[in-house]
Design a protein around this nucleic acid. Sequence first.
RNA 1: GCCGCCUUAGCUCAGUUGGUUAGAGCGCUUGAUUGUGGAUCAAGAGGUCCCCCGUUCAAUCCGGGGAGGCGGUACCA
Length: 503
Amino acid sequence: MAKKQKTFRPKARVPRGFRDRIGAELIAEREMLERISKVYEAHGFDPLETPAFEYTDALGKFLPDVDRPSQGVFSLQDEEEPGMSLRYDLTAPLARFVAENYDGLPKPFRRYQMGTVWRNEKPGPGRFRQFTQCDADTVGAPAPHADAEMCTLFAEVIEAAGVARDDFMVKISSRMIVDGLFEKLDLDGDDQQQTRLDVMRSMDKFDRLGEVGVRHLLGPGRKDQSGDFTKGVELSDKNIDAVVSFLQSTPVNQNLQGSDVADANRQNLDKLMRLLSDTKNGNAGIAELSEISRQVPDDYKGSVLIDCSIIRGLEYYTGAVFEADLTFEAKDDKGRPVRLGSVGGGGRYDGLVKRFKGIEVPAVGISVGVSRLLAAKEFISDDRISYEGPIVILVLEKDQMTEYQKMAAELRAEGIRAEVYLGGSNFAKQLKYADKRNAPLAIIQGSDEREKGEVTIKDLVLGAELSKNIEDNAEWREGKRAQVSVKRSELAAKVKEILARRG
RNA sequence: GCCGCCUUAGCUCAGUUGGUUAGAGCGCUUGAUUGUGGAUCAAGAGGUCCCCCGUUCAAUCCGGGGAGGCGGUACCA
């Protein structure tokens, strides 16, 4: 009783949190990366490539931690010690590279790097487990000059990526002034590390949860709309007031531009002075922020805003922190407002190389989230990113294949994408194929044309335009206005002309 | 990780108060309009009703578990 053997068919599916990308999206990303790296190179940064894998112990200062075993990192299960993991950012590999090659590198060492990173986290909308980052860092240069350059660089890069200057803002703050705040609140004891972390986490949510939400988090705790409860930090009312007041140094939801930014920065620094001038860290932080913003070139002063609610990388950054935010309003397909938010971050991390070398090496850098920028650009320009397919040369007579290939070669020689139809279908199907490929033109040579020494060039874009006003099939077929016949020898020149006419 | 909602054709969704052949629109395939995309017309393909277990004479529908998706929240170097 031979039962039919069931053949195993794996389910064809992309792994959770990952995605396939094709055509237009890849081309758009490639162009954006090219423009970004041009800016980095113009500033003197050299390209660097490091492998996708690093030894796990090189990856981060939280890894492999006891209480959080490799959380968020894809690791190989292997006998090998210390084991390898996919990099989750480009900064840790940079620190490793600098430590490994320290003696031979020019100092300061300035490199940019674009590459894929992986994070083993729960995916969300616009949030994937594999994505591209584009970083620039200066290693071995102290504040504030290098920090000021990073602010300018950030603005230049985002502008180069295609976002208008009024549509984004580089926000800066400093970990030192937050430390100043902790001094002021008597939270600077060695035994209060955890409290400081919790307070910073709460502060980081200011833009999303607002004053009320943050007050709950700092106090008794907060219940979200699904009924889930987040434990609070249980600060005193007086301290909560102080933290909130600190966060509100910069007015939120107010689109500042140009000289307004300079005013806001001045007011902000004044306020910080009143609040924190009697603290050691606060003073140092204020001086540094003030100097950084002073050193930003006039041209970009309107794009660099001091904003104390910027927190970022809790245990990571030691000085300035940056964040690039999009400031324009966007709506999704259903007309609901969309929070576009941050398209990049960065800051000063003076402790990273120390993990490897034991010596303090000051470093500062930025990281641009390329996919976020791409998504944002789709909101800016309403028309979807689309690109033209190749010109398709139809095959009407199979024995003329060599001739068709010759036509394609002639077009390619002029720098025009062209391909000969390689399927097995009839005329109408071939045109349908060309249509689906988004081909601008189709090249037609059947026996009629061949005998006259001609080719027909059909303008598919114009044809689609004309068809809108035609209901009748006979008229649609007869009215061959969207095509011209030219001498065979003039093919390439004529195609070029038609494409140029359209722009 | 935690909380809530959802899962029926390639896509968007109907539907079955538990019953034999599960539907629509769009898309797709084929054909007609004698060598022209669109429109029109005709025909057709496509489903383990997310998966597993249970209740039942009978489960796409009820119960339990799991997976995936969406939203919120936590973490985010």
